[in-house]
Design a protein around this nucleic acid. Sequence first.
DNA 1: GACAAGCACGAACGATCGTTCTATTCTAGT
DNA 2: ACTAGAATAGAACGATCGTTCGTGCTTGTC
Lengths: 207, 207
Amino acid sequence: MTVAQRPSPVRASKGEETRAQILAAAVQQASSAGFESLTIGSLAERTGMSKSGLFAHFGSKLDLQIAALDEAARQFTESVFLPALKAPRGLKRLRALFENWLGWPLHANLPGGCPVDAATREYHHQPGPMRDAALERQRLLDREITRMVELAIETKELAAQTDASQVAFGLSGIILAFYRAELVHGRDEARRHARQALDRLIRQHAA
Amino acid sequence: MTVAQRPSPVRASKGEETRAQILAAAVQQASSAGFESLTIGSLAERTGMSKSGLFAHFGSKLDLQIAALDEAARQFTESVFLPALKAPRGLKRLRALFENWLGWPLHANLPGGCPVDAATREYHHQPGPMRDAALERQRLLDREITRMVELAIETKELAAQTDASQVAFGLSGIILAFYRAELVHGRDEARRHARQALDRLIRQHAA
DNA sequence: GACAAGCACGAACGATCGTTCTATTCTAGT
DNA sequence: ACTAGAATAGAACGATCGTTCGTGCTTGTC
């Protein structure tokens, strides 16, 4: 969920190509069943490779998990964050981010919602590289969102005394509640509630 | 002169007692590492039992997981929901529920937040008894919260035209954002943001 | 004190886990 | 076209998974 880190070359080598395929499958599986479900065996079957052949691309299960987390963050940046930057700074951009975010799991075929969120929940109590990586991503994300809110203050669309981090808190709550409501009440009702909640949040802090 | 030697006044049978101990450990572990991490072996080590001895209490891993989910829901009802019912209906009760909820994971030593939430995320894409049970719990919870909001409308503390389910959506978002912010920014800041978000939510729908 | 029932243990099962080897196939630069 | 190195497969390892089975303790009842 941060800035892109690797521009893709024109033609990747065979190895990098299959590695990318593996990671794509890994992200999907992690989204729906958690990063701990990323077993070498199941992933090998899913991609039609041998266990050892797949394993050789990463060297250890932990490295595979971290690579999958990075890939999930990269996808988020690519599908949600960067497109929002095309909108003019301020509320328009904030709303664009929000809409991209709501549609992301469906569009990217990530049935379990944001994988980084899943990882954060999964590892927050188990010290180690996965926990560190997930929390770092979340911090970065928070910083980006807060910055976007600050831009909306600078454009005077939000009141000058607005607490940007408080708005970011509210925004993350709407997204999280949306993912939950999507499961409990269905997509349409979840969208309706989420949009209304965002409108109310913005209205409340409007200049 | 028969000495009735009963260690505790109302003592459940030995079996039920150890079963309860196992479930208590299971709920804690599920909270921090997910229900899929509930392996017979690790749970046996944690409780100082043998694998087969522990296993005999449940008959299958699935039954153990479901029992753990039920126990988590029972704990939530006992520690969060029922105490709130002592407050007078309306906003007071809603606020009591909210405060109990915020403090629950810490007080109940559930480092990973609400286990039912964790289960919902973990299984929502894998059809089966766990998914069904988790979603059913969430629906029940939503109904209870919505009902509490409706009571606050009846007491005229909230506006008559308030959409109770929308307020319930907002409330769940605040709770979810709180759990997340607790990990990313620490408990104090998370509490501050959560309380202010609740105040704003209530003010917005106040009569 | 005998006896049935409830309860826990230890050993073992097949399956799968992550990982390490060696061997074979394929790709890419010349 | 040749070849060095990258990429993949296959077999096997010890560990752990969920589960079964047979056995021995406890416990409460006659």
